[in-house]
Every structure is written in C-alpha cells, then in structure tokens.
Design a protein around this nucleic acid. Structure first.
Length: 197
DNA sequence: GTTCCGATGTACT
DNA sequence: GTACATCGGAACG
C-alpha cells in the first residue's frame, strides 16, 4: 500500500482508518486496535509548541515513524501524517498480536497474552521498537503497515493520560476488542460513537 | 479488585 | 523544579 495514500490525511482520519490495519516490524506485530490523533493545533501534542530536536519527525514527510521516550523509560510509536498540516501524527496504542508472538513473549517476559501489546509502551517493547526506528520510513520491510481489508466497527472516546484538551475525542478503538490498553466508556450517550471504517 | 510508588528523558516554567 | 501521550510490582482491602 502506498504510504501517501494511507497517511497523507488529517490525523483524525488516519487514526480512524488505521483501526483494523496490520502493523509489522521485522515480521512481528498484529492488527491495530487502538490509536490516538495529535496535531499542531492540539495543546496535548508534542508538536503544539513547534519543532524541537525531539519532535522533528512530526514536521517531516508523512508515512514516517516518530518514536519518543516517555517518562524516561518507555517508547511510544507514532505514524506521521498530513503533509498539509505539519506536526500531525497518530499514536499507535495497542495491537491484537498475530505475528511473531513467541518473540513478543520473550521481550515482554511473563505478560499475559492479551497484554502483550495493550499500551503504547508495551507494544514497542513487544515489537522491539526503540530509538533506531525514529524517522524510519513505513513500508517496505522491516516496518510495514497494511490497511484493513474489511470494514470494522470503530469506537471513539477521549484520549488516555492527557491533561490538556482532555475533552477532545481523538481516541479510536476496535469495538469490543479484548486487546485495548483500557476499555472505552460503556455508552453514556454521547461519549461513544460507532463508525464504520 | 484498587491505589501508590519508582524508574528517570525531554521540554518547559 | 515540574509535568508528561507509561508500566509493573508492591501494598492494601
């Protein structure tokens, strides 16, 4: 799949479309079940205050990886998108493991199967993603994302762990998936929307 | 089941 | 010094 076709769109659009896609790094990975959208107009985004040495990939071309360290020890993996709006990216928060599960287990220790990739730090540990992946092109091997081949039900909610723009619903998930980093709120009216990808 | 804590890179006040 | 797009384990009920 052509990277621009997949990624050169607003972060919200890419975040929604990536649900159900398959992410692989060195043939290890699985189906994307949870994402979050960030862009330069968003106070919760690393790009909000303009380019820095750390966030430089966010201001580069779409279809590249932005990998950063959080809280001094975990890695988080983002996909840069939207060439017309510099500083846009999608955080991949959780996968449904399907490829190279034994390697994941070795890197993740005694984590139970549903938690192998349930969280941005966890999935980076499971796939062996670290600083070396920062700025890497997505597709071809070793870093690949293949869009979903069938429509999926997508739920939407507020992002995890952000204090700025806490009411903005830019978190997307695969409806009913047991591989989410945490559940989406159980239908308090307008809190959850179902979208067909 | 929940809450609290420690690990400690990077950007900002 | 403080906040942060986090996780795993200990301590608790």
């Amino acid at each position: 799949m052509d990277a621009a076709h997949l990624f050169d769109h607003p972060a919200d659009v890419v975040a929604r479309r990536l649900i159900g896609a398959t992410l692989l790094f060195h043939d290890v990975g699985g189906r994307v079940v949870e994402t979050e959208a960030y862009d330069a107009t968003d106070p919760a985004s690393h790009s909000f205050r303009g380019p820095t040495k750390r966030n430089a990939p966010m201001f580069g071309p779409p279809g590249r990886a932005y990998v950063y360290r959080i809280y001094g020890l975990h890695w988080c993996f983002n996909v840069v998108c939207d060439a017309s709006s510099a500083g846009s990216a999608v955080l991949i928060r959780a996968l449904e493991p399907s490829h190279g599960v034994e390697g994941m287990r070795q890197r993740r220790g005694a984590a139970p199967f549903p938690a192998l990739c349930a969280g941005p730090g966890r999935l980076c540990q499971a796939l062996g993603i670290g600083e070396a992946v920062n700025g890497a092109r997505i597709g071809p091997f070793p870093l690949e994302i293949k869009s979903a081949d069938a429509p999926v039900d997508v739920v939407q909610g507020v992002r995890v762990g952000v204090r700025h723009a806490a009411d903005v619903r830019r978190r997307f998930g695969l409806a009913g998936s047991p591989f989410l980093s945490r559940p989406f709120p159980p239908v308090p009216g307008s809190q959850v929307a179902v979208i067909c990808a």
